Amino acid sequence: MADLYLKNLESERRQLWATCRLKGLPRGSEERLRIAAIDEAIAAHKAKTRG
């Protein structure tokens, strides 16, 4: 079964990353901070599902 939560997080991360690349946003921007938060959420979710 597809993990929709994980797919949603990864999709949002890809969108934010593309926006950052197009606009040339610096590391401390809101979008970059959100990407870092999403990375943590993805890692936590994968660790939880693996056991």
Score class of each variant (00 low, 15 high):
Met1Phe: 12
Met1Asn: 11
Asp3Gly: 04
Leu4Gln: 12
Leu4Lys: 09
Leu4Ser: 09
Leu4Asn: 09
Leu4Met: 09
Leu4Arg: 11
Leu4Tyr: 05
Tyr5Arg: 07
Tyr5Asp: 07
Tyr5Met: 06
Tyr5Ala: 06
Tyr5Ile: 06
Leu6Cys: 04
Leu6Ala: 05
Leu6Asp: 04
Leu6Lys: 09
Lys7Tyr: 03
Asn8Ala: 13
Asn8Leu: 10
Leu9Phe: 08
Leu9Thr: 01
Leu9Ala: 06
Leu9Val: 01
Leu9His: 05
Glu10His: 02
Glu10Phe: 00
Ser11Val: 02
Ser11Leu: 07
Glu12His: 10
Arg14Tyr: 04
Arg14Asp: 07
Arg14Cys: 03
Gln15His: 06
Gln15Glu: 10
Gln15Val: 03
Gln15Met: 11
Leu16Gln: 05
Leu16Glu: 05
Leu16Pro: 01
Trp17Cys: 07
Ala18Arg: 14
Ala18Leu: 14
Ala18Asn: 12
Ala18Phe: 05
Thr19His: 14
Cys20Met: 14
Cys20Asn: 05
Cys20Ile: 15
Cys20Asp: 03
Arg21Asn: 15
Arg21Tyr: 08
Arg21Ala: 15
Arg21Phe: 06
Leu22Trp: 09
Leu22Lys: 15
Leu22Thr: 05
Lys23Ile: 00
Lys23Phe: 09
Gly24Phe: 11
Gly24Arg: 10
Leu25Glu: 12
Pro26Gly: 13
Pro26Met: 14
Pro26Ala: 13
Pro26Trp: 15
Arg27Tyr: 12
Gly28Phe: 09
Gly28Asn: 15
Glu30Pro: 02
Glu30Val: 08
Arg32Asn: 15
Arg32Phe: 04
Arg32Ile: 15
Arg32Trp: 10
Arg34Ile: 03
Arg34Met: 05
Ile35Val: 11
Ile35Pro: 00
Ile35Glu: 01
Ala36Glu: 06
Ala36Tyr: 04
Ala36Thr: 01
Ile38Glu: 03
Asp39Phe: 00
Asp39Pro: 01
Asp39Leu: 02
Glu40Cys: 02
Ile42Pro: 00
Ile42Lys: 01
Ala43Thr: 05
Ala43Arg: 12
Ala43Gly: 01
Ala43Ser: 12
Ala43Val: 02
Ala44Phe: 03
Ala44Arg: 11
His45Met: 08
His45Asp: 04
His45Gly: 02
His45Ile: 02
Lys46Val: 12
Lys46Asn: 08
Ala47Asn: 07
Lys48His: 07
Lys48Pro: 01
Lys48Trp: 06
Thr49Lys: 13
Arg50Gln: 13
Arg50Ala: 13
Arg50Asp: 08
Gly51Lys: 10
Gly51Trp: 01
Gly51Asp: 05
Gly51Arg: 10
